[in-house]
Structures are given as structure tokens and as C-alpha cells.
């Protein structure tokens, strides 16, 4: 009898803890300033919360049926694998669209930096002449 009370307490703790994690994640997504800040909440907190809720459900049905249940573990594994992939793709899409960033958001990748992209690399600077013609050389060649 005592075992069931302890198991009920464990399941309740897992359910409430998981729901609190999911709530905190969604609250962070609703209230932060910047897309790159908003990405943090759902990817980490909400995934942890849903994992806790599913493990609580797994323990409940395992105790009820007196045999181990694996379906919930399958959903948990799938969510834990797929959450980082979707977050990575969302970050790539946001970088591609050049979304506005708050001042606190640090780092500027070279791929989206226009100043770094506009400088053409000089192939052989030590040979004195470049394979890529400059604009002045091109105009002289066309004049001849």
C-alpha cells in the first residue's frame, strides 16, 4: 500500500514539474525581445517538460497494467531527437531572412555580414599581379 502512495507522489511530481517546464518555456517565447532569444524557451524547457510528462504517464500505465510500456518512451525519444533539428532549421531560416536583432544578441556570422561579403579575395598577392582584373585594368583592355 505504501508503495502505491510513493508511486502516486512520484507521478504527480513528474506531471506538475513537466507542466511547469512547458509553461515556463512558452512564457519565455511570449515575452522575450528577439527571435534568437525566443528560440531558447521552446527548444530546451518545453522539450524537458514534455519528456517529464510522458515518463510520468509511462510509470502510471506500467503500474496499472503490471508490465512495462514502451510507446511513451518512443514519443519521448522522437521529440528529443527532432527538437534540435527543427531549432537548427529555424535558426538558419532566421539568419537567411536577416531578422532584426536586439542589442544584447551577440555575434555576427560572416555569411550574413554584407561588409565581409563585398571584399573580393586577392588570389596571389605575392606575385604582384592578380588573376582577377580590377575595374581599371578591364577598362584599359576594352579601350585597346
Amino acid at each position: 500500500m505504501t508503495l502505491y502512495v510513493i508511486l502516486e507522489a512520484v507521478i504527480s511530481l513528474l506531471l506538475i514539474g513537466g507542466a511547469t517546464f512547458a509553461f515556463i518555456g512558452s512564457m519565455g517565447m511570449a515575452s522575450m525581445q528577439d527571435f534568437f532569444m525566443r528560440l531558447h524557451g521552446p527548444t530546451k524547457a518545453t522539450t524537458t517538460g514534455i519528456g517529464c510528462i510522458l515518463i510520468g504517464s509511462m510509470i502510471y500505465f506500467g503500474v496499472l497494467d503490471r508490465k512495462p510500456v514502451v510507446q511513451e518512451l518512443l514519443i519521448t525519444l522522437f521529440l528529443f531527437i527532432s527538437a534540435p533539428v527543427s531549432a537548427h532549421l529555424l535558426g538558419k531560416a532566421a539568419l537567411h531572412l536577416k531578422l532584426e536583432r536586439a542589442e544584447k544578441t551577440q555575434g555576427s556570422p560572416a555569411e550574413i555580414d554584407d561588409d565581409a561579403n563585398s571584399i573580393k579575395p586577392e588570389p596571389y598577392p605575392e606575385h604582384g599581379r592578380t588573376l582577377v582584373l580590377t575595374r581599371k585594368e578591364l577598362e584599359e583592355k576594352q579601350r585597346q
Partner: peptide, 18 residues
């Protein structure tokens, strides 16, 4: 922006699983 809405839908389906 558009990624914000995709992120909201992503979180919403996770919450609906819960």
C-alpha cells in the same frame, strides 16, 4: 516575422501532445 510564427506552431504541437 515568419520564423516566430513557425516557432509558435512548433511549440503548440508539443504542448498539444502534452
Amino acid at each position: 516575422s515568419m520564423p516566430d510564427r513557425i516557432l509558435a506552431l512548433d511549440t503548440m504541437y508539443v504542448n498539444s501532445i502534452a
